[in-house]
């Protein structure tokens, strides 16, 4: 029994150890990797990804999956940019309303996604995938395929202003993470995600309104996708349909690499932070050590397999799907 507990505690830290080993490895190959400037670079690439992955974490904790992020991020980015430009073009005046505006857009898309999944009883994989198509299409319709440039210096300060060498957006993402942590640990809805992931019929038998919790989970995911979208726009200064591209597989991979099980019920947002950092450290490290870019997809794949293999709790798991 004791032994089991010790093993449990070690296993909890495995993703973090993997991250540490990766950092040490890349630092050993190229000392420049260890510079603050480079860490800031990793922080910039991780911040939007973290928000999107945190959103996905809530859904995965319930044992469902959300693949709508590429569409949702695109729509939210475009909504944000359009509102900002329409409301005077600067956060300093009415423009700040664009941020809650984008979050509402994300929440609405999430709600539609969740309702389709729960009400029509379509597996979340399919419902959210379809909603992803709808989202991408919607953003295309809104932009007409054009890019929307954001010039507001105040908004861009998320990227340009640095405190202790890290850009503001890193702190913003950290703030988002803390909010997510709070939701996960200290609110009824957060704990209900775990309950559903741990045993849906049991949760239902205890009188939990599972459908409602699920929909709320998707809404929450949509809101975090919106935050990711805002940070992604801050990073590039552009909002377009393409803003969402690439988030889907990377965010799910990050969640799993961080140690949150796709089956639901275990893991959480701190795991996702570690997972996002692992994926981004690998991405950044490969560039820093000068790996030819055509090899990077393959090496990322190999490292992800290794990381998941090391961090997964395989006891009681007789087979993987």
């Amino acid at each position: 029994m004791k032994h089991g507990l010790v093993m449990d505690n070690i296993r909890k830290w495995v993703p973090f150890l993997v991250l540490l080993v990766l950092v040490l490895f890349f630092a050993a190959v190229n000392p420049h990797f260890l510079s603050l400037r480079n860490f800031a670079r990793i922080a910039v690439s991780s911040s939007p990804a973290l928000m999107v992955a945190v959103g996905a974490t809530f859904v995965i904790l319930m044992g469902s999956i959300d693949l709508s992020m590429e569409g949702t991020v695109a729509v939210c980015a475009v909504v944000f940019a359009m509102l900002l430009n329409r409301l005077g073009g600067s956060l300093a005046h009415m423009g700040w309303l664009a941020i809650p505006g984008a979050m509402i857009a994300g929440g609405v898309l999430g709600a539609v996604n969740g309702l389709i999944h729960v009400r029509l009883r379509i597996p979340s994989f399919m419902a959210s995938l379809s909603m992803g198509f709808v989202g991408v299409g919607l953003s295309l319709l809104m932009t007409g395929g054009n890019r929307i440039l954001i010039g507001d210096p105040l908004f861009r300060s998320l990227l340009t202003v640095r405190i202790m060498s890290f850009p503001l957006m890193a702190y913003a993402a950290l703030g988002g993470l803390l909010v997510a942590w709070f939701i996960q640990g200290r609110t009824t809805i957060g704990r209900n995600f775990y309950a559903i992931g741990g045993g849906e019929d049991l949760a239902r038998a205890s009188g939990l309104n599972v459908g409602r919790v699920r929909v709320i989970g998707f809404v929450l995911a949509g809101v975090f996708f919106a935050l990711g979208a805002v940070l992604a726009v801050a990073r590039l200064g552009i909002a377009e349909t393409e803003t969402g591209t690439g988030f889907m597989f990377l965010s799910i991979t990050s969640v799993v690499v961080g140690g949150t099980a796709l089956a639901g019920g275990s893991g959480g947002v701190w795991n996702t932070l570690v997972g996002v950092l692992i994926v981004n450290v690998i991405g950044n490290g490969m560039v820093v050590v000068g790996l030819p870019d055509y090899l990077q997809d393959g090496v990322l794949g190999l490292l992800v397999i290794t990381a998941v293999y090391l961090s997964m709790d395989r006891r009681g798991l007789s087979f993987a799907r």
């Binding site: 704990r191 775990y194 309950a195 992931g197 741990g198 045993g199 049991l202 949760a203 038998a205 019920g265």
Partner: peptide, 9 residues
């Protein structure tokens, strides 16, 4: 009869 506690909570 089938235990209805959720194991991860």
């Amino acid at each position: 009869q089938e235990q209805s506690l959720i194991p991860n909570l």
